[in-house]
């Protein structure tokens, strides 16, 4: 399959993730949609690694994966902290940084 199809697919996944971030209001679903966007980027990186014939893009994708794991840990920790302090699970109502 041509490389361009992988890139089109990664753009589609990225946009579906962006749509989820824009429309959903639960912070949990927004985090999952962010994962979608990161995975779209990963697919593009792997496709470019295949296109150039070097493994550098795959190393980049692995680092993105690690950053995503760190983001999930901190984000889910925040969600659990929000749940414990009885805050509403809605990003529109959480417009202040004060805890």
């Amino acid at each position: 399959m041509d490389i361009v199809w992988y890139l089109v697919l990664s753009a589609l996944i990225f946009c579906i993730g962006a749509l989820g971030v824009l429309t959903r209001r639960s912070p949990l679903v927004i985090l999952i949609s962010l994962e979608l966007m990161l995975n779209g980027g990963n697919l593009a990186l792997a496709a470019f690694a295949r296109m150039t014939g070097t493994s550098d893009g795959q190393v980049f994708a692995l680092i993105v994966m690690i950053v995503a794991a760190a983001e999930v840990v901190v984000g889910l920790g925040l969600i659990v902290a929000m749940y414990r302090s009885r805050l509403p699970m809605d990003v529109d109502e959480m417009s202040e940084l004060k805890g």
Partner: peptide, 21 residues
């Protein structure tokens, strides 16, 4: 996506995707 990574000859990336993600 891990299957797609395998099609792109990114074997380690596919394995990491399945195990980590």
């Amino acid at each position: 996506l891990a299957v797609l990574f395998l099609l792109l000859r990114a074997e380690f990336l596919a394995a990491a995707q399945v195990i980590v993600y």
